[in-house]
């Protein structure tokens, strides 16, 4: 799928958020939200990103779009190093990369009709005016399964699923090549969720979009993704083609996540992780997952595992090669 150069390439992405401290108090350790993540998204490829809350997956999505300034590392999109762009250049470049949020209200202005919300990026980024712009807006509405008639309405007049369709239409309005979707269906009822997943999938295929699909829901990620990255405490635990990752997870954390999907296993046959994700201000030494890993050995506390290739395109960060998961 990504034989050519990837559309999106990130290297060593790191984000530390400072926490308090300052004038008179001693500096506190920062929140290490993302720690040295490499990733690529090929043209027309869907990269799924999964992890629990606190895994850094949303932060990673924002770093890749440079909606957040990274503490380290670099991102290039279609050969352009985002860090080299001035603020103005970045704004213009944003037409190529868009974001869809869990809450569509986050990307829709409540005081703008859907028509206005769509025309803005169409005129700004595609230079279309008047009837031409109007026709593009209608076409966008149709592509997400809504009618031209509905363009007159305000976002609040739509149901949750329709509103997410509007947010998708707006994200597509600038004809981007890359979209980061952060939990786009998590707030929706299952019947509506299925519609929006199908819509995203067909748009992605028809338009050849590159998509970074961030979700805590492994079942949805499996359906839509070509490859899946598993994050824990801001580090990549495993990354693999979807089929390989779900059939034969190589990292204990991936295995635990998969087994925790309701209905995936009989509960007695399930690895239930102890405890909770540790604080990102004080991540464990060595492997960050070791405090919850049922397979941890002494070495795990002292050795930081590297992300090693175990099969083509399949990498895992775990020093234990003797596990059958």
């Amino acid at each position: 799928m990504s034989a050519a150069a990837p559309l999106v390439e990130a290297r060593g992405l790191t984000k530390h958020f400072p926490t308090g401290g300052g004038f008179l108090s001693r500096a506190k350790p920062p929140v290490r939200a993302v720690e040295g993540v490499d990733l690529t998204v090929g043209a027309g490829e869907v990269l799924g990103v999964v992890g629990e809350s606190g895994s850094g997956k949303s932060t990673l999505g924002r770093l890749v779009l440079r909606l957040l300034e990274a503490s380290g590392g670099e991102v290039s999109v279609d050969g352009t190093d985002l860090a080299t762009l001035s603020a103005g250049e970045l704004r213009a470049f944003r037409r190529h990369m868009q974001m869809i949020f869990q809450d569509p209200f986050a990307s829709l202005n409540a005081r703008m009709t859907v028509r206005e919300a769509l025309l803005e990026p169409i005129t700004l980024h595609r230079g279309a005016k008047g009837r031409e712009a109007e026709a593009m807006a209608v076409e966008l509405m149709r592509s997400v399964g809504l009618t031209a008639e509905q363009m007159k309405r305000y976002p609040r007049a739509f149901s949750g699923g329709q509103r997410q369709r509007v947010a998708i239409a707006r994200a597509l309005a600038s004809a981007p090549r890359f979209i980061v979707a952060d939990e786009p269906v998590s707030a929706l009822d299952v019947s509506v969720q299925a519609e929006v997943v199908n819509l995203l999938q067909s748009l992605q295929r028809d338009l050849g979009l590159s998509l970074m699909f961030i979700s805590h829901d492994l079942s949805v990620v499996e359906i839509i993704s070509d490859r899946v990255m598993v994050l824990y405490l801001g580090r990549v635990m495993e990354i693999a083609p979807t089929e390989a990752l779900y059939r034969a997870p190589a990292h204990p954390y991936t295995a635990a996540l998969l087994q925790a999907i309701p209905g995936a296993r009989s509960p007695g046959d399930r690895m239930i992780l102890k405890g909770e994700i540790p604080s990102p201000t004080a991540p464990p030494s060595g492997c960050v997952f070791r405090t919850r890993c049922p397979f941890a050995i002494d070495d795990c506390a002292s050795t930081v595992p590297t992300l090693d290739e175990i099969a083509p395109g399949h990498q895992k960060a775990c020093i234990r090669d003797d596990l059958s998961l």
Binding site: S53, H216, L257, Q259, A260, P262, E276
Partner: peptide, 10 residues
């Protein structure tokens, strides 16, 4: 999260 959900269900 699913891992915590599994704990609570158990």
């Amino acid at each position: 999260d699913v891992t915590i959900q599994a704990q609570i269900i158990a």
